[in-house]
């Protein structure tokens, strides 16, 4: 399991826990003290990025598409922050 903490500048904390198959996300949990309305969107985001490779642009784009599709509001972090947190986790031991 790869885990990383990521502090959003001027925002909240993110923690990513994931397993990889090569460079591909096999499973992922996105945690933190951010706000997301509706809260259920987090599972939709996690489902959407399983199978995705570790690429900040692609991840960010997929996360944003889920936010847009669910008309969700993410507060204390952005889709790019989550993508960067995932990248950081991928590089952890």
């Amino acid at each position: 399991m790869k885990v990383a903490d990521y502090k959003v500048q001027g925002g909240k904390m993110l923690r990513v826990k994931m397993s990889l198959e090569g460079r591909m996300i096999k499973s992922i949990t996105i945690l933190g003290d951010f706000f997301l309305h509706p809260e259920s969107t987090i599972e939709a985001i996690e489902d959407k990025i399983v199978g995705c490779s570790i690429d900040v642009q692609i991840l960010s784009s997929r996360i944003q598409s889920v936010l847009d599709e669910h008309k969700a509001v993410l507060i204390g972090a952005t889709s790019i922050d989550i993508a960067r947190a995932i990248e950081k986790a991928s590089m952890s031991n």
């Binding site: 923690r15 949990t29 945690l31 003290d33 809260e39």
Partner: peptide, 9 residues
């Protein structure tokens, strides 16, 4: 804990 946090964390 917040709804996006892990209790054991």
């Amino acid at each position: 804990i917040g709804t996006f946090q892990g209790m054991m964390d």
